[in-house]
Design a binder for these strands. Sequence first.
DNA 1: ACCTTGGATGTTATTTTATATCCTCTCTAG
DNA 2: CTAGAGAGGATATAAAATAACATCCAAGGT
Lengths: 152, 152
Amino acid sequence: MAATRQRSIPARLDSAAKACAARGARLTELRRQVLALMLDSDGPLTAYQLLDRLREMRERAVPPTVYRALDFLMEQRLIHKVERLNAFMPCSDTGHDHPAQFLICRQCGRVAEIEDRVAAEALEHAAERQGFHARSAVVEIDGTCAACFHRA
Amino acid sequence: MAATRQRSIPARLDSAAKACAARGARLTELRRQVLALMLDSDGPLTAYQLLDRLREMRERAVPPTVYRALDFLMEQRLIHKVERLNAFMPCSDTGHDHPAQFLICRQCGRVAEIEDRVAAEALEHAAERQGFHARSAVVEIDGTCAACFHRA
DNA sequence: ACCTTGGATGTTATTTTATATCCTCTCTAG
DNA sequence: CTAGAGAGGATATAAAATAACATCCAAGGT
Ligand SMILES: [Zn+2]
Ligand SMILES: [Zn+2]
Ligand SMILES: [Zn+2]
Ligand SMILES: [Zn+2]
């Protein structure tokens, strides 16, 4: 079991369910289980890591089971995909539409989500200047986290 | 054959070779062929698209052939990987070390490389504030390019 | 010229990641 | 009831990337 976080997992699941309902979508049992696994993890999980864990509860799970749930959760903005890791993690700020910005530690594998308005706006403007209509932006920064840096 | 670009492909290959040599690396025939294919393409290419094209010149090519060349070209900062597309494209500013920033058009598949110093610096500072030591940053913005937007 | 050596490439196989397709079940709007 | 949509089950396959080991070959020292 992962360390305790700001809000309890059941509370986060419930507010996720409400957010979905408000948009006319259903956080079904399967989707809830998948989201719960992600909330319970210390770091990002790949689809197949998630599948392994899901099978403990749901023997019949296969890749499409997981990918469909992941697609749904991404549409609902409850999770993000970390492209550089082909892995997924819960959004730290559930439901709010914002560009995904991550700090990815190469040493420990941990990923921190940040929200830098200055960078986000600079990128918006840069896109506009090219006449480009932005839908979604991803920022992923590789490096060494403070903890790993001090350890070294 | 793709449209003519700012500088001729042979000229770009030659300056790439020089840049490699300056760093004690060799732009071998294989690597040169792979880079040439990318320079000749109108858009990003996946490793397997590249493999198909490469086989026209080099029958024995297999996935590791391509991936090794791609790894080399990325180390030499001659190309970038576009994570959201699992595809690769030449750097627009060969050899200079800079964060990769892309505008990806969903409609036409074209990818434009931009270089926004404001965003890059904002992200650097954001990382620093967390005590994070950044190595390399990737920015990928999905949306619709000006041409496709006007067409619609 | 002759080794030696490390980088580059060849070769085979496999792993990891993601999607296509078709079917069944359930719920509900009409 | 009953069509239609959404959710999930099931099978198969495609796409992307890497592992591991063999061979080649270019460059530098002798
Ligand atoms: Zn988020
Ligand atoms: Zn770390
Ligand atoms: Zn570049
Ligand atoms: Zn376009």
